[in-house]
Design a protein around this nucleic acid. Structure first.
Lengths: 357, 357
DNA sequence: ACCGAATCATGAGACGTCTCAAATCGCAAC
DNA sequence: GTTGCGATTTGAGACGTCTCATGATTCGGT
């Protein structure tokens, strides 16, 4: 139904080769022929068939990105950056959602490969260790760049924030406000970046001369229920409970806050709180949550740059690239001095005891 | 580099036609041949080349969706629903962002058409009336289904909420709390759904016997600055100012709240507030914002169903479909009785006067 | 006017898949 | 051992584009 180059050729009175040359702008074509062809294009409202072109050239000008859950605000921002970079270079971006399932993630990647995308951006579904087969499938054929959540031990290009440094910054901030018992709520520690954030936590404690307590490391999953249980157990106990919480990502951070609000605890009254990632339009809801902000747009943008560099024959064989971007700490209401130093008896502990009964 | 059917045929010792038949499962193939081919597929790790298949069959099994801004939480939810429905039917979904620009939107649609997507879901960029050319381009060749923001006078299938009814519900709720001066902050009225929401507003007023005042219709754009100006002017004036605000969408709603918080007004103390769309994780931030919740996932899902029905030869010629889904009103902190009936002097008016000085 | 060298135009062939008319096979009936 | 017929298999051709070897044209120089 749509017009083809052959029809253009007939209308313009030139050969199909000439039409092709005009369209791809490659070989020299006389001005006269060019105009005839351009006229024909206008008359027939011709659109090149990218499918046919791809078949011939073996290039699709398409990249794919797979994220665990597109409805988590963090990911669309990455996607936007990636799409921006992609389009600037003339590439399409296919967006797929793995629903945080490794199975579906593998399917999505297979689909993208079948569609002959030239490269893939991957924010891995968390939670499991990679099987050797999956690892192999990731690194074979079209190149992959991992973002944010790096599967441990996977030898591919990657872009993420300086997780360790960002976590250290957050913890230092809390220590600076006088906190000495700081719990950390992590996601799955199979993810390299979660390990790194935990490392930053320990590093900050060490620099501050505070002993590390294993009992203050909570979480280890994105499961809302598990996070809720650990937070409630951890903060409702009568003694030795932390005065501050640090969540290593927005998902567990939100789950933690929800679960604690549900039992009547609130920040900063009962505990100080800092989380990775922007939870919401935090600048006008109360309380504002102190957050470690990642340069999401940049991450997506840079990841595409890395990927395209890998696609370019000239630079395809370069050593693995691991881009680390700096994060920013935004201090809002939720991080304050410890309750133990201010309004201990009337609000916090009293409340807690009442709830435990 | 990847294996082709021809190579499979050679390895399996059959013809290329037989291989094709095995793969597409079409014509009858003997069990013996089938096994030989399946073995070869396994040995060579064959993946069909979807590009070549598309060229031959003239089908891409791909849909496209263009949204104004993927970082607005409303859209990823729609996308998720659409992707879900698409994948269930074996379709891909290409996600594109028009950055709320008609120009880019047209580009995106052209790109999708060049990629030979079979159909397009469109959440139109707001703000301008459609030129006849653009209108024509929208309705030509591959079918389009509009979601949420319907360009006025465009004759295509559409899926959105019952905008009029939802707005009426929200306003009735406010009137039920005793409000009689209710301002409405709309987006661009070139969008059909914005018109509808305004209509619902008027309808509710009428049923409640409250005269419509043109001076209480603010906004008319998604521009943050313009919204801010109108809200501040409207609420800071000494007399005749409304006791409640209704925002017809999340973008202007957020802008309105921000601008009012910025001048020291807060809800529900100084004004009651209801907005279309979920602004954030509103159930635990204070104040919770009363919201009209749209069935976003369903909208995307249903839109794909409508689109695929249009693609199916059997039902392609059916009359235009306009799906209207019901919305839900979630009442939270921000809608309450008017300040004039409760704590008038101490908080609201006093504050306002102070600020105007 | 003619030659050689650019420059420009041509059209067949290939990309990997599907389709389909024609050829071949297997087997039962005679 | 033929014949006949349905079940399988075959392989050429087409989808729309690009490539490239070849052929045609132009043009400056003499």
């Amino acid at each position: 139904m749509p017009p083809t180059q052959k029809e253009l050729a007939k209308l313009a009175g030139v050969s199909s080769g000439t039409v092709s040359n005009v369209i791809s702008g490659s070989t020299s074509v006389s001005e006269r022929s060019r105009q005839k062809v351009l006229d024909a294009i206008r008359v027939l409202n011709y659109q090149p068939n990218l499918i046919a072109r791809s078949l011939k050239t073996n290039r699709t000008n398409t990249l794919g990105i797979v994220v665990p859950d597109i409805t988590i605000p963090f990911f669309p921002k990455i996607i936007k950056g990636a799409e921006s970079a992609a389009r600037e270079r003339g590439y399409f971006l296919i967006v797929l959602d793995s629903e945080s399932s490794h199975l579906r993630e593998a399917d999505m990647i297979a689909l993208l490969r079948a569609q002959r995308v030239e490269g893939i951006l991957l924010v891995a579904a968390g939670g499991e260790v990679l099987s050797p087969e999956r690892m192999a499938s990731l690194t074979s054929s079209s190149p992959v760049v991992c973002l944010d959540r790096l599967p441990a031990d996977l030898d591919v290009d990657s872009v993420c924030v300086d997780d360790c440094g960002a976590a250290e910054m957050a913890i230092s901030h809390l220590m600076g406000m006088g906190h000495r018992e700081i719990a950390i709520i992590t996601g799955p520690l199979t993810l390299y970046n979660e390990q790194e954030r935990l490392r930053g936590y320990r590093q900050a404690l060490q620099k501050g001369g505070i002993p590390f307590q294993k009992s203050l490391v909570w979480g280890g999953s994105f499961e809302q229920d598990q996070v809720a249980r650990m937070c409630q157990n951890g903060l409702l106990r009568p003694a030795g409970r932390p005065s501050a919480l640090f969540a290593t990502n927005g998902v567990t951070g939100l789950a933690a806050l929800r679960s604690l609000y549900a039992v009547g605890l609130s920040t900063p009254r009962d505990f100080s709180f800092v989380t990775f990632d922007e939870l919401t339009a935090e600048d006008f809801f109360k309380p504002g949550i102190s957050s470690v902000i990642q340069p999401t747009f940049d991450m997506g943008y840079r990841a595409v740059e890395v990927l395209l560099r890998r696609l370019d024959k000239e630079t395809a064989e370069a050593p693995r690239e691991s881009v680390r971007l700096p994060a920013t700490l935004i201090v809002r209401d939720s991080s304050s001095t410890p309750y133990s130093e201010s309004s201990k008896s009337e609000s916090a502990n009293g409340k807690v005891r009442g709830l435990r009964a």
